[in-house]
Every structure is written in structure tokens, then in C-alpha cells.
Design a protein around this nucleic acid. Structure first.
Lengths: 139, 139
DNA sequence: ATCCTTATTGCAAGTTTTTGCAATTGTATC
DNA sequence: GATACAATTGCAAAAACTTGCAATAAGGAT
């Protein structure tokens, strides 16, 4: 749990609270390599904090996502998944076998800038998920 | 309803059936300018076809999406929305006011090709949703 | 026109996600 | 440290979505 101490001051500095629930959820996300569904987070987090309830999981994940601490993404099946927002990246999912590959943000930068100019929007560092067939499933 | 007649032969040619449920749902999507949630489709469609049930809405929308007749997208709130797959496009959503702008597919072509080369995946004509602040909300 | 096959639907029950509100508990201030 | 304010949580109930399976009906063959 000491590995998520960095988040407490960051939360407080923005007027939020560093509650045990949030710390445990961040801790779970940090130690899961990759993205987790709300149910998976719930399973893990309730071990460290037995009183934890499901509505709290959903609300906390949404809160952490909109505050930029975690990244929310869709991976094809209509389920939302969450992961720590460490490095800006995107996902490429094989719609046949479900394999998932990370895409660096760099190749998207040019496109982002171009779209900002043509649309007038200021783009967030949003999470993009692309779908396709992985090399193994192209037969 | 005659405006969705074009879909019946397209369905049958691929071994699917042109059921009243599918026709009504396609009809609803055609006459709704823009994307609808499953509940909105349900509300509209049950007027023309009273027996229609919710599971059928969800299953039909998913079926139409994976067969390429409609486009499925996420617009920020974790809800899935659907619209007729007429022209290949993407969405740019303002995370402050919810305004939504369509993005042509053309500017993404180069990027798609580049990613196909570097990852080995063959990309679908997938739907991408980007988030940002619209001109009016940048204050 | 009728029959047959099988894709598709409806039903009922389950799971997942959201919402409103009262009770709790962080944190800033004294 | 004790106090007060407001953010956050838990509870309970509702809404949204999914799943399994038996009944239906679309479309091809006779």
C-alpha cells in the first residue's frame, strides 16, 4: 500500500479526499499489469478492505477516470476496463481472438494536432481503441 | 417502412433473415438523425411493433453492428449508441457540454495504414471516439 | 401451397451498473 | 486535540443489460 502514497497529496491538492477506498483501488490497479473490469477490481480490493461495496467501485473508478488518475477504455465486449494512467497509450484489439496490443501515443500526435486545427476542439489525451485482426487470425 | 426495403435482400443474401423486428429497428435508426441508445430504440420501435422485447433490441443491435449494417459507438458516458452505417465516420465529443462533431474517415487513413504496417494487424473500419473541449467550452 | 430446417424471438431469471438519500469520516480551522 | 463543514461512502432499490432455453416463424425445397 505504500506504493500509492504519491496519490494522497495529489488528491488533496485538488480538493479531493485520500480515502482508504480510493487508496485500495489505486493499489489494486497499480499491481494488476494491464486493465481490469470493475468486478475484477471489486474482487481484489475487498480483500484489503472488506467493507467495500460495488457502488463505491463504480463511482470511484469513474471519479478517478475523470480526474485523470486512471484511464478508462472499452475493449470490444461492451465492458469498461480501467488502468493506471501512467503512460499515454492506446489499444488495438483483435476482434477474433481478443488479443490486445498497446499503441504508443506518438504516431497519433500529428493527427491530433491536425484535427484540433480543423475542428477547433482542444483534444484531451483520450484513450482510443481500434479493432482489427491480429496476424495469427488472418486466415 | 418502405425506406428500409433495401436491407431485406442484403440480409437474405448473407444467410440472415429479414424479420419484422430487424426491419423496424433499421427503420427507427434511419429516421433518427444521429445515434440512439438501446432504450431509445426500444421506445421508438415498440410503437410500430408492440410485441417487441428488450433482449431483442440488444441482440439485434449487436447483430446489426457486427454484420456492418449499423455502427456502434461509445460517447463518453459508458453508454453504447448505434446509428446506421451509411458513411464511415468518427465522433469527437466535448467532455464539458457533450456536443458531438463528426470526423471524416479520410484523415485517419494514413495513420491506419501506418499502424497496419508496424503492428501486423489488419484494421477494421472501426469507429473511433475522441474526447476534448469544444471551442465554446474552452474558457 | 405445404413441409422442414434452423435462425431468431420471447420469456423468465440472473447479473451488472446506476441512483437517491441518510450516515459517515476526511481535512481544514480553531 | 476538538469542531464543523462538505466530500464520500454504504445501503436499498431501481434500471440497464445478459443469458439459457423452449417456442416461433422466415425462407428454401418439394
Amino acid at each position: 500500500m505504500s506504493c500509492v502514497n504519491e496519490f494522497a497529496p495529489q488528491l488533496r491538492a485538488r480538493g479531493f479526499r485520500a480515502t482508504p477506498q480510493r487508496m485500495v483501488i489505486l493499489h489494486v490497479l497499480r499491481h494488476a499489469g494491464g486493465h481490469l473490469t470493475p468486478s475484477q477490481v471489486f474482487e481484489q480490493a475487498r480483500i484489503d478492505l472488506p467493507g467495500l461495496t460495488e457502488p463505491t467501485i463504480y463511482r470511484t473508478l469513474e471519479f478517478l477516470a475523470t480526474s485523470g488518475f486512471v484511464l478508462a477504455a472499452h475493449v470490444g465486449n461492451g465492458k469498461m476496463v480501467y488502468e493506471l494512467a501512467e503512460a499515454q497509450h492506446h489499444h488495438l484489439i483483435c476482434r477474433h481472438c481478443g488479443a490486445s496490443t498497446e499503441i504508443e501515443h506518438a504516431p497519433l500526435e500529428t493527427l491530433y494536432h491536425q484535427l484540433e486545427v480543423t475542428t477547433g476542439y482542444r483534444l484531451d489525451s483520450s484513450h482510443v481503441t481500434l479493432f482489427g485482426l491480429c496476424p495469427a487470425c488472418q486466415s
